[in-house]
Design a binder for these strands. Structure first.
Lengths: 115, 115
DNA sequence: GTGATATATACTGTCAAGCGTATATACGTC
DNA sequence: GACGTATATACGCTTGACAGTATATATCAC
């Protein structure tokens, strides 16, 4: 994936918010992202598919849940850009609220406790 | 300017190439950018106008020439992203050729010698 | 098998980005 | 003033991204 594509992918609010959340949390399933972002499920799913096809995130199934995380094989400069961005934006809206909504979410599947 | 807008601006090849060149060279006029990028003048001019309106670059006139440079007042995380990106991409195509074409350009206005 | 939940995809319409072309504006020289 | 060069902008067009809705697929419980 070339750099232009990388940036154009970050240039959409839903994807950027999802990536910042993933950077923060490590791994999240679609329903967690849908809840935290406050969006319809197909919207989130489509953007995640795009991120997956671009190689920015990895997905694996765990029961009914698809878990997404930042792709470990990402070029280092891209990972650094994501880290810097998440750090710089983490304290602002809407990223704060996203994280808060995630924290308040009931019945989170939880990759560790009930997989 | 929010982060999404910032990234969507980087997500266009012409703008990214122009920004990498500006990061490298410090300051360039429109005709230098047009020559280095190998594009029609209105294309370059429109993208520069967009970068200017977004606050990513500053412009000042010097005689007939408009000189552009990265905006000094850029948020530090954005400047760092640009630096990292330019460093990571500087050795690849098309950024190498852009810089080469610029170097080979005859009759460069030159901000220092003939302003 | 049926039904419930989680996720992905297909379809359709809308909207905005971008390009090529032509033209306008600004500056310098005469 | 006229003319040439550098740059900016306006116009018309095309194309692709995205959303909402509906539907398909996968997994689990029974």
């Amino acid at each position: 994936m070339d750099a232009t594509r990388f940036f154009s992918i970050l240039g959409h609010p839903v994807r950027l918010r999802a990536l910042v959340l993933l950077q923060r949390e490590g791994e999240l399933c679609v329903c967690e992202l849908t809840h935290a972002l406050g969006l319809l499920q197909p919207v989130v799913s489509r953007h995640l598919a795009l991120l997956r096809e671009a190689g920015l995130v990895d997905a694996h199934r765990e029961g009914q849940w698809m878990h997404y995380r930042l792709a470990p094989g990402l070029p280092s400069w891209q990972r650094e850009v994501l880290e810097q961005t998440a750090t710089a934006l983490g304290g602002q809206e809407p990223y704060v609220s996203d994280a808060a909504l995630l924290g308040e979410m009931p019945n989170r599947p939880g990759s560790r406790c009930c997989a």
